[in-house]
């Protein structure tokens, strides 16, 4: 059974059709690339899956359930986590606290216990600190635990976003341009990291990325969209050799030149 299924999904913003009649499905354990030129509607697809936007038409099934009626909070709790193209960390909190925050459901103390600072609260807080350290170690940020999140360089902020998403214990992880702003070495390390977390946490992943080397390294399957519409959905070999993809990215004339 497929983990995620989009059926004829359309999303309009006023007159703009950002996503048009898009269908694809994803099996458990798959990692797929979602690519397309700027403004193709990739981020909008993530916003639809996570419930930030409601679809104009179509349905989105997660584990067979229609999630488009659900609010974002219950979608996250159902097992879908994401990172953001324009980094959205809790800037004034420390790196560690960013992770501790999203682990809040593991802290089973109540408000009265907090006000009185009972031993249970102290113990649970210590537990959360240890748990968040585990996630920081996975992405290699443990030595920055007490830095303020916004004091990190961009590359590390993106890693912190990945750690924060992991801490939500998702089944499906949506990564929106995790390599943006990284140099080739850093992207290479990122590839290893994504591979590692996928195995370690049994994740299904959709990766939006403009760095083609990262996509080709990680994704056996690639979904290409253009102007909100599905262009191709197939193996990376098929996508690599498809001239429509080249056209979509470079425009008609350049594709002809490159083809010759």
């Amino acid at each position: 059974m497929s983990l995620l299924e989009l059926k004829n999904v359309t999303k309009c913003f006023g007159g703009i059709v950002a996503v048009k009649d898009l269908s694809f499905s994803l099996n458990d354990g798959e990692i797929a690339g979602l690519i397309g030129p700027n403004g193709a509607g990739k981020t909008t697809v993530f916003n639809l899956i996570t419930g930030v936007y409601k679809v104009t038409e179509g349905i989105i099934l997660f584990e067979g359930k229609d999630i488009n009626k659900c609010d974002p909070v219950s979608i996250v709790r159902g097992g879908i986590a994401r990172t953001f193209q324009n980094i959205r960390l809790f800037n004034k909190l420390s790196v560690m606290e960013n992770i501790k925050t999203v682990l809040f459901r593991e802290a089973n103390y109540n408000f009265a216990q907090v006000l009185m600072k009972t031993p249970k609260v102290v113990k649970m807080e210590r537990h959360l600190t240890e748990r968040s350290m585990e996630y920081l170690k996975v992405v290699g940020l443990e030595q920055y635990a007490n830095f303020r999140a916004d004091s990190l360089p961009y590359g590390l902020q993106r890693k912190l976003e990945i750690a924060r998403a992991l801490a939500l214990k998702p089944k499906l992880l949506l990564l929106d341009e995790p390599a943006a702003g990284m140099n080739p070495e850093e992207s290479l390390a990122l590839v290893d990291l994504i591979r590692y977390i996928k195995e370690q946490y049994n994740l299904t992943i959709i990766l939006i990325e403009h760095h083609m080397d990262v996509v080709m390294e990680l994704c056996p399957r690639i979904i290409v969209i253009n102007f909100g519409e599905l262009l191709i959905d197939g193996s990376k070999e098929k996508v690599q050799s498809d001239e429509r993809v080249l056209k979509a990215y470079l425009g008609e004339e350049y594709a002809n030149v490159a083809g010759n």
């Binding site: 974002p72 953001f84 959205r88 809790f90 925050t101 802290a107 609260v121």
Partner: peptide, 21 residues
């Protein structure tokens, strides 16, 4: 506590807070 961190998270970025459940 977790209640305080959640409050700060909402202040810092309501969308990201919501996406964190």
């Amino acid at each position: 506590s977790k209640f305080g961190r959640n409050a700060i998270a909402v202040r810092e970025d309501a969308v990201a807070a919501e996406m964190a459940g």
